Every structure is written in structure tokens, then in C-alpha cells.
Computed example of a mutant assay.
Amino acid sequence: MRKLFGTLALISTLVVAPALAQDGYQTDASHAVIMDYETGEVLFSQDGDVAMPPASMSKMMTVLMVLEAIESGSLSLDDELPVSEYAWRTGGAASGSSTMFLEVNSRARVEDLLRGVIIQSGNDACIVLAEAIGGSESAFADMMTDRAHELGLTSASFANATGWPDPGQMISARDLAELARILIRDHPDFYGIWAEREFTYNGIRQYNRNPLLGVFSGADGLKTGHTEDSGYGLVGSAERDGERRIIVFNGMDSNADRANEAERMMRAALSDYSVYDLFDAGDHVDHNAPVFMGEADSVALQVDADVSAGLHRRARRDLVVSVNYDGPLVAPISAGDVVGTLRVEAPGYETQEYPLVAAEDVARKGLMGRIGAALAHMIRG
């Protein structure tokens, strides 16, 4: 995060900035999001809040459920799980879909199944894990949906563990990015698996489909997806110089288009966007609000939370921060009272508002002082 000094225009009236559509990032993806990992700020969005069919990118939620089961002790990496005929027929070699090539009525270790899901995108591995945790794939899908909503991923609904096309299998690009952020932040011991380039199981060697791995320096995850309904999509993450970005896009026309867009979008995410630190919690803004009937004529205003803005580098010069309140404020005022808002605007940036609080107490004038203030107010009109 970068501290922004000297270029911050602080005003007390609303300024409307011009749109940056033609100057910001451009993509042919139907849905796309660039997210800053540290803050969770969305730096770029194209229909990023619109639910879409995620294809195999929804396997990230399956993996999260498995990792939480492992950490709760209800599942272990060494557990050997049975491969049901349903799992084999629906997601195995017989299905013609992405598979780990599990054999029907065999048993597989949870650790191998995890790699089968993450690296090979094995539908059979997903179903085996789903049946072990939920009893059935459909019951597990309900658990996935419930857990996603608990985590604030409100656009998510899951009908299966694999991402197989279904009208009930939907999630937004923003929520997929947040899901990736959760996996990276909360499960660091397992995150390295997402960067593994290949995995051999049952004598069959398969390769990670993520086009960023080995091509884009710092890339280390996460998941591709493709169906006829969704097109080609990706959730990717990379870290450079201490900054990590997460990208999500969907709806590309081909595998080659996905690979090209992945590299182009990640380069823009790390080169063209920055998160600027505007205020730290407790900072005073450069504006005092007038006070009526107070023992002091004005009161200092401060923010009660960190304020930052993730911007395209070309939008920085047009950043506008405005102080907004109904004034004058009327005494008495207590320190910490919310008295206004700080509005942050820039071209191509989703306007944000933060509470402004009084920095100190302002007592009400005594009787004679109030009479004098009222007379002065009447004289001034």
C-alpha cells in the first residue's frame, strides 16, 4: 500500500469526476474483477457483482470445505475414502469429464484427492470428498452454499461439488476473488498445492491447467474453469514486491484467449493499479466544522477507520476526497459522535463513504451565551 501525500484534494462540496471507461483496463471477458489481496479492495470490475456459472472454479469452495474438515479434525490427510460407483460414473474416466482416473470401488487418500481436485480438476475426486463429508453430493452442495453465505459470499449457490453445468451453480467474480483471498489467508499450509505444476496418480501424469504458472513471475494459483455455458475462465493470484493481486475473469472464447487474458490482466493488476493509503484511523481531516451554540466555534473532524483507495494510476490525478455534513453542527457534541461523511471519488472507482466523527467534546453555551448567539444569528439573517 502506498501513502498518498501532496496530491489529495480535500473539499467540502461534492465534485463529480468524469468516467474512466475509455482510459482504464479493457477486457473481452463477460465478467471480471481485479482485487487487492491485502485490503480486499476491488480495483477493477466488469459485471463483477453479477452471478455467473463458475464451472470448475467452484471447486475452490469444495477445497475450502475439505480444508475446514481437516482442521476441525473430522477428516485427516491419511484417511482413505471409498470411490463409489456414482463418483466413478459421474466424474471418473467413464464420464468423459475432467478426472483423476480413480477406479470404482477402490480407496484413495484425502491428500491425493486434494491434489486431484486442485491440480487435475478431477470431478471424481470432488464427489468422493463430497460424499465423505456430506453423505451425498447434493447434501454437500447445500453445505457449500450455507458456508459460502456465512463467509459473506452472498451471490453463491451450489448444486454440485464439481462445477458441472446446473442452473443452481452460480457465483459472482467478486465472491470468487474473496473466496481465493480466504484460501490464501486462512489456509497457508495448503496453499502451495495450487502452484504445483503436475500430479501423477494411478500411473497417469497430468498437468495443472493454470496458464500463469511458469509463465508469469510470482504466480502461484489458483483455478481454471470451462463449460459451454461459462466459456473459459480463471481465478489467478500472483505476488510481486510484497504486493499480491487476485484476478477473476470468465467468458473467454478459447483456451488460448484465456491464457492471453490471464497474463495481460495480471500484468495490469500489478503494474497499473495501486492501493493508496489516504488516512489512518484517528487522523484529522483538513477541515473544521462550524458549531452553533457551542463554547467553541468549530470542531475538528477525524476518521475512525483506515481509508484507502485502489486506483488505476491514471485516475490518481483526478482523485477527490470531500467532507460532507449538515452544518453548522449544533452543540452539545461529544467526541466520537458521527457528524458527517468522508466521500472518496475517482474516475473508474466505485465511490466510497466513511464516517466522520467529532475529535473532541464541544459543550453547549450557557444561557446568556445562547441568547447572545441567537441574537447574532438573527441579525446576520
Rank of each mutant, 00 (worst) to 15 (best):
235 V>Y: 12
134 G>H: 09
50 V>L: 10
347 P>I: 03
64 L>V: 04
360 E>L: 01
77 L>M: 05
278 L>R: 06
375 L>M: 14
77 L>H: 02
127 I>L: 09
216 F>Q: 03
376 A>N: 14
296 A>G: 01
354 Y>V: 05
114 L>H: 01
48 G>V: 05
141 A>S: 08
11 I>R: 14
86 Y>D: 11
40 G>E: 03
170 M>I: 10
160 N>A: 07
308 S>P: 00
1 M>W: 00
53 P>H: 15
200 T>Q: 15
258 R>W: 06
32 A>S: 13
210 N>F: 05
204 I>D: 07
312 H>F: 03
36 D>C: 02
232 Y>V: 05
59 K>Q: 14
183 L>T: 04
265 M>S: 14
85 E>V: 03
378 M>G: 03
337 D>G: 01
87 A>W: 00
48 G>M: 04
125 A>P: 11
14 L>D: 13
312 H>S: 04
338 V>Y: 09
146 D>W: 00
205 R>G: 01
342 L>C: 10
353 E>C: 11
275 V>N: 11
280 D>G: 14
219 A>T: 04
36 D>W: 00
227 T>G: 12
322 S>I: 00
258 R>G: 08
160 N>C: 07
61 M>V: 01
313 R>S: 07
30 S>D: 13
101 F>C: 02
30 S>F: 00
306 D>I: 05
270 L>R: 10
101 F>L: 06
64 L>S: 02
7 T>D: 12
357 V>W: 11
14 L>P: 06
114 L>N: 03
16 V>Y: 10
102 L>G: 10
101 F>Q: 08
100 M>L: 14
139 A>W: 03
271 S>M: 14
253 D>H: 12
327 G>P: 06
181 R>Q: 11
287 H>K: 13
20 L>A: 15
154 T>R: 12
347 P>K: 03
343 R>K: 13
153 L>R: 04
205 R>I: 01
113 L>Y: 00
74 S>P: 05
364 R>C: 00
335 A>M: 07
261 E>S: 14
222 L>R: 04
178 E>A: 14
299 V>P: 01
344 V>F: 09
317 R>D: 15
340 G>P: 04
94 A>D: 11
275 V>M: 09
173 A>V: 03
153 L>H: 00
360 E>S: 14
355 P>W: 05
192 G>H: 07
140 F>E: 12
173 A>F: 05
330 V>F: 00
166 D>I: 04
208 N>S: 08
67 L>D: 01
36 D>T: 03
125 A>W: 02
124 D>V: 06
131 E>N: 08
69 A>F: 02
249 F>D: 08
159 A>L: 04
72 S>Q: 08
